[in-house]
Amino acid sequence: MSITLTEAAAYEVKDMMEKNGMPDGYLKISVKGGGCTGLSYGMSAEEAPGENDEILTFYGVKVLVNQTDAPILKGTIVDFKQSLMGGGFAIDNPNAIASCGCGSSFRTREVAGTPENC
């Protein structure tokens, strides 16, 4: 299994999907080139899986991960954390060997990505 979605994250995703009229939708977690360190995470709501998507289910939330991104995301935990400043998704990827100060960009030992100026 490439990723894990915590119960708190699943609850937040369900709420967001329902508010956006997609109660039967999928959460797609992806990796793309860019950011200060070379790779960036992407999260989007999708109506259906793509041809190369792996479908995972956590607490009733259907999650899509493209087979190309799966090795980069292997072991990743997606959580939702609440603080006095609000809430947000936190991504803990054990494959990331470097990340930028804001935490939204990373690289792995095998994949450097395409860094951009920040």
Rank of each mutant, 00 (worst) to 15 (best):
M22A: 11
E54D: 12
A48C: 09
G60T: 03
A48Q: 13
G34H: 11
G42E: 00
E51F: 11
V31Y: 02
M22D: 05
K28L: 11
G34L: 02
I55V: 14
Y59I: 06
L39W: 09
L39Y: 07
P49F: 14
M43E: 02
K28F: 14
D53K: 03
V31N: 03
G25Q: 02
K62H: 06
G60H: 04
I29D: 06
M43Q: 09
E54W: 09
Y26E: 05
I55H: 01
C36T: 12
Y41V: 03
V31G: 01
G60R: 08
K32F: 15
G42F: 00
P23H: 06
S44F: 10
Y41R: 12
P49L: 11
E54A: 14
F58S: 01
V31K: 07
G34W: 14
C36V: 04
D53R: 08
V61Q: 08
G34T: 07
L56P: 07
G50M: 05
E51G: 10
A48M: 13
C36I: 05
I55N: 02
Y26C: 08
G38S: 01
K28G: 10
G38V: 00
G25V: 01
G50C: 06
E46H: 08
L56Q: 07
N52K: 14
G38M: 00
E47T: 13
M43H: 06
T37G: 11
G42P: 02
S44M: 11
G38A: 06
E46Q: 12
G34I: 06
D24G: 02
V61C: 09
P49N: 08
P49S: 03
G34Q: 08
K28A: 13
V61I: 01
Y41C: 02
T37W: 00
S30Q: 01
C36S: 15
S30V: 03
S30G: 05
E54Y: 12
G50V: 02
Y41K: 09
G50L: 03
S40K: 15
N52M: 12
D24V: 02
A45R: 12
I29M: 11
D24I: 00
K32V: 12
G33Y: 13
M22H: 07
